[in-house]
């Protein structure tokens, strides 16, 4: 359905379009991270593209790949009725250098999406007007949706009551066994100190 969009992108950006595929009629292009803003500007402003709505912006962590993260935007054109998914790959093994240009100038709605993506995955959006945590608290260390964040690590803001204070056992049975749930994060369970 959006094959025209993919063709136009290939014609305009050539080698900067790394790959593309379509799944169930949804077209996806993977672009060079350095061309992120240029591609977005083209998709927003070109009269044949007119992607005037940003449906979603998020990131995915693939710990075994390099670059490690994929930043994903989903675009929809209200006037032309087509949609496209654009991805860019950033970040090294440690998650450093996960930086990409902001698209807040093009779609103001990207502001909070990018803050959330920063909050959860630690992607830094260069040029963002107000890049700070949106859901978690400023004291939080690390980025919880990165696959190397231990699944059982919590960072309480209020120190937990001790069992002596409460006078009864406070430990609950874990809802998942060792072999269930998010195995990648449960290999080690570091004890965290309340901040």
């Amino acid at each position: 359905m959006s094959a025209k969009v993919v063709d136009a992108l290939k014609a305009t950006f050539g080698a900067a379009i790394l790959e593309n595929h379509a799944h169930c009629g949804d077209d996806t292009v993977v672009v060079e991270a350095s061309k992120w803003l240029e591609v977005a500007t083209f998709l927003k402003n070109d009269p044949a593209m007119k992607f005037d709505m940003l449906s979603d912006l998020c990131a995915v962590d693939y710990p075994d790949r390099l670059p490690r993260f994929e930043v994903v935007i989903h675009l929809y054109s209200i006037s032309l009725g087509h949609r496209i998914r654009v991805k860019a790959r950033v970040g090294d093994e440690e998650g450093d250098g996960a930086e990409i240009a902001t698209v807040t100038e093009l779609w103001p709605g990207a502001n909070w999406f990018e803050r959330e993506t920063y909050d959860m995955n630690g992607i830094v959006f260069q040029g963002h007007p107000d890049l700070r945590r949106i859901l978690l608290y400023p004291e939080f260390e690390g980025f919880p949706l990165r696959k190397d964040y231990p699944a059982a690590r919590t960072q309480p803001l209020v120190a937990y009551r001790t069992e002596a204070e409460a006078g009864l056992p406070l430990e609950k049975l874990a809802p998942f066994r060792e072999d269930e749930g998010m195995a990648f994060g449960r290999r080690e369970l570091p004890t965290s100190e309340p901040s």
Binding site: L136, P144, A151, T154, Y160, R161, L170, K172, P175, G181
Partner: peptide, 17 residues
């Protein structure tokens, strides 16, 4: 509950009686 993760307090008795 099943929110066994970074975001959720595992029971309010951890904070208040």
């Amino acid at each position: 509950g099943f929110y066994d993760n970074y975001a959720t307090v595992p029971g309010i008795d951890k904070i208040i009686p």
